[in-house]
Simulated scan of single mutants.
Amino acid sequence: MASLESILSFNFRDLETLKYADGSSRTVAPFHILGTQTLPGVGCASFSGSILAFGIFLRPLALWQLFHIPSRVHANIDVAGEELVGKTTDHLWQKLAESKSFSQRIEIAERFLLPLAKAACVRTDIMRSANQLYRSKGATRIEELAHLSGLSIRQYQRRFTDDLGMTPKIFARITRFQRALDAKRLGSGRSWLSIAHELGYFDQMHMIRDFQSLAGSAPTTTIEQSGDLQPWSAIAPLGVER
C-alpha cells in the first residue's frame, strides 16, 4: 500500500518471489530496498521453504539524508539494495545473517546506522515544509506552505516534487491515510466515521475512496491485512532531525 516510509529488507534463507499483474515474476535480492510508495502494489509476494528476514523501517526522507539517495529516485520501486547504495551493505547483511537473535540484529543495525545519522544531510527548506505538512496530518494548505517558502504555488509544487518524489497533494493524502491507520490501531473501538471527521475528510465515503486509491481496499480490510508491513507513522518526525 502507499507509504511515505522506506524499508531496508534483509532475507537470510529462501528468497521471496514477486508476482506481477501482467504474469511476470522475479526473485527478490537477499538485500532489497522498498522505496516510498504512492500507489498500492501491482503484484504480490509469495514465500516457500524456510523464511528468515529482518527489516529496517526508515522514516520519510531518511534514505536521502543517510545514503544521499534522492527521494525521486526511490519512489515506487522495489530494487536490489546494491543498486542504490552499492556494496557497502554486504558486510552488514553478513553480520545480520550470522546473528543468533532479534535483539542482536537490532544492535548491529544501530551500530551501522548511527554514524550515518550523525553525518546526515541537512534537510532542505522544502523538506522542512514537508515536515510541517506531515505534523499537521496533511491538513496544512499548500498555498500557505508556498507562501512561507517564499515561492509561487507552481514553483513550490515543482521543487517539492523534485525533493520528495511526489507532489505535495499526494504527500498530504498519504500522510492523512497513514494517520487514519494509526488512529484505528490506537483505538480499535473507534468508528471509521469519527476518524474521518478527526482527520478532515469530507465524509466517510471520501476516506473510503482514499483507501481504495492508496491501499486497494476498504479501511477495515486494509487494517486487517496490513500486519507489520505498514509501519506506524504517528508522532514520528520526518527523517533525521537536522
Rank of each mutant, 00 (worst) to 15 (best):
K118F: 05
R123N: 02
L113I: 13
Q212S: 02
R179K: 10
L199A: 03
R154C: 03
S136E: 08
M166P: 08
T175A: 13
Y156D: 05
R176L: 06
G138T: 10
L214P: 09
A218Y: 13
L164G: 03
R141N: 12
K118T: 09
T161F: 02
R128V: 05
E107R: 12
R173L: 10
G189W: 09
A196R: 04
F211P: 02
F202L: 13
W192V: 08
A183C: 13
Q178R: 13
T140A: 01
E110Q: 12
L151F: 10
L133A: 15
Q132C: 02
A215G: 15
R190I: 06
I174E: 06
D125S: 03
P219V: 10
L114Y: 05
I174D: 04
E110G: 00
M127Y: 00
T161C: 04
D203G: 07
L116M: 12
L164N: 04
A109T: 15
R190L: 13
F171H: 13
W192K: 07
A180P: 11
Q178I: 05
V122H: 05
V122C: 02
L133F: 03
T140N: 00
K118C: 03
R173W: 04
R176H: 09
G165P: 07
F112S: 08
E107K: 13
L181A: 14
H206Q: 08
R158T: 12
G200M: 09
D125M: 01
L145N: 01
S188E: 13
E110P: 00
I108L: 14
E143R: 07
R141L: 13
G189F: 06
K169A: 13
D210F: 00
R159W: 06
T175D: 09
E110L: 12
Q155H: 09
L199Q: 04
A183K: 14
R154K: 10
G200D: 10
G187T: 12
G200L: 06
R141G: 02
I195L: 07
F171P: 07
A139C: 04
D210R: 03
H197C: 01
S194V: 13
V122K: 11
L114K: 09
V122F: 01
T124Q: 01
I142K: 10
H206Y: 02
